[in-house]
Computed example of a mutant assay.
Amino acid sequence: MKKLITAAAMAATFVAAGCATPAVQLTPTLDTLQAFRTATIPPMGLGEFGLAPGRPPGMDRSLLVRADSLRPPNGGSFAQFLKETLQTEMTAAGRFDPASTVVISGQLTVSEISTMSVPNAALGARFQVRRSGVLVFDKELVVRDSWQYQFIGAIAIPEAQERYTALYSKLVRTLVTDADFRLAVAAK
């Protein structure tokens, strides 16, 4: 009987895991809010965000997490999700101004999840900042996370998805705390 229950539980896990899960929209994070507020960063606008040249188009639309797939929220792209996360964080910090002459754009360069022996996730983007149309910042930033392996898919899949999604705020915070970025956007 115990083997039957275990087999049924495993089958239910595989069936439940076989669907597409949208990434959860993030709320502003306290750490990123503080990073914005402690820096001399003027209000900025946002330009185009898309997939970096030469990257496979699928990496912007879906990530395989065992038998499940993680998709960007609202049917968009991961690059647009990065833009939305940046806008959410900037707005919360009072640093978003669509009419600003300082504009951030970005290209998604890394988007990965693995739940194998050493579960990990990575997210990267090449950010560019233009001031009155002049390029003043161009740099790729990558953030990573790793965690303890879980055999059971019902635990491993949601954890991997949550860890990957949290990298969006972490990447924004990495941008905001980057010394070159701060120098490039400082009021002149």
Rank of each mutant, 00 (worst) to 15 (best):
K2F: 12
K3Y: 09
K3H: 13
L4F: 12
L4Y: 10
I5N: 11
A8H: 00
A9R: 00
M10D: 01
M10I: 09
M10Y: 00
V15S: 08
A17V: 07
A17T: 13
G18W: 07
A20T: 15
T21P: 09
T21N: 11
V24W: 04
Q25E: 12
T29S: 15
D31K: 10
T32H: 02
L33K: 07
R37N: 14
A39H: 08
I41C: 00
G45M: 02
L46Y: 11
G47K: 06
E48D: 15
F49N: 06
P53H: 15
R55I: 10
R55Y: 03
R61H: 12
S62L: 15
V65G: 04
D68F: 00
D68R: 11
L70T: 10
P72A: 06
P72S: 08
P73Y: 08
P73T: 10
P73F: 08
N74W: 09
F78N: 09
F78G: 02
A79V: 07
K83A: 15
E84D: 15
E84L: 14
T85F: 00
Q87F: 06
Q87Y: 04
Q87S: 11
Q87A: 14
R95S: 01
F96A: 00
F96V: 00
D97F: 03
A99F: 12
A99Y: 13
V102Y: 13
V102F: 13
V102P: 04
V102G: 10
V103N: 05
I104G: 06
I104H: 03
S105P: 08
S105W: 00
G106C: 08
Q107H: 09
Q107T: 11
L108T: 01
T109W: 09
S111L: 04
S111I: 00
I113N: 03
I113D: 03
I113K: 05
T115M: 04
M116T: 12
P119T: 05
P119R: 10
P119W: 06
A121C: 09
A121I: 02
A121Y: 07
A122Q: 11
G124K: 06
G124R: 01
A125P: 08
R126H: 07
F127G: 01
V129Y: 04
V129G: 04
V129T: 08
R130H: 12
V136C: 02
F137H: 03
D138Q: 06
D138Y: 10
E140Y: 02
R144S: 14
D145E: 05
Q150F: 06
Q150N: 15
G153Y: 06
G153A: 08
A154L: 07
A154D: 12
I155W: 00
A156W: 05
A156N: 07
I157F: 08
P158G: 07
A160R: 05
Q161I: 13
Y164K: 03
L167A: 09
L167Y: 10
Y168I: 03
S169H: 07
L171T: 03
V172Q: 03
V172W: 00
T174D: 12
V176A: 11
V176K: 04
T177Y: 05
D178E: 09
D178Y: 08
D180Y: 04
R182E: 10
R182N: 13
L183A: 15
A184G: 01
A186D: 12
K188P: 15
K188R: 14
K188S: 10
K188D: 15
